[in-house]
Amino acid sequence: MIREIQYNEIFDAQEHFRLILDSMSRPGKINKIYNENISTPEGLNNASALIGFALLNRDVGFYSNKNKTQIEEYFVVNTNSKPVAANKADFIFINGNEESEVIDEANEGLLEYPEKSATIIIDVEEIYDSAKDQSHELILKGPGVMTEKRCYIRNIKTRILEQIKEKNSEFPLGIDIILTDKQGNVICIPRSNQLTWN
């Protein structure tokens, strides 16, 4: 497995974190995270890999169910993080195009410590600002959004959106979502936001 050497653990991680922070603070806002010099395993978006690099290390566990062995090895080699069961994972990597029980199992934290919950990184085909064919229109309301924010996703199962909504119905318990696409576009849906879609 490839140990990425074209990645700067100090400065790339810092830069990408700031973009994730910006997107998480402004749900639905698209930021671009991309590094053409890394070669991610099949089934893992470039941006998802970079998000993993920015946030994973030996102190947290992750779960991935797509192309499992390769992606696990990739993160272990590059971040020192450890693969764990879905209900124990701090970070979960899934594909938006496949329905999955994993979201139901994901850790949603405790009332006293709601932050002890999973962040889910979902790979989708495309994320954009204006409506296009075959896309889901997401509508976000809540902290970080002035009135409401609309964004458009291609190739995400409606079931996944339903699962997210169910999981986040009892704030402050819940899961936080990062969506990435093939071009490196990233948006976030924190649990504090109300999610609806068309």
Partner: peptide, 18 residues
Amino acid sequence: ETTKKEIRRKLLKAICIP
């Protein structure tokens, strides 16, 4: 960098739970 990552992960959670 280990501690920075920990703080960053927690900042993201803090944003999610204002």
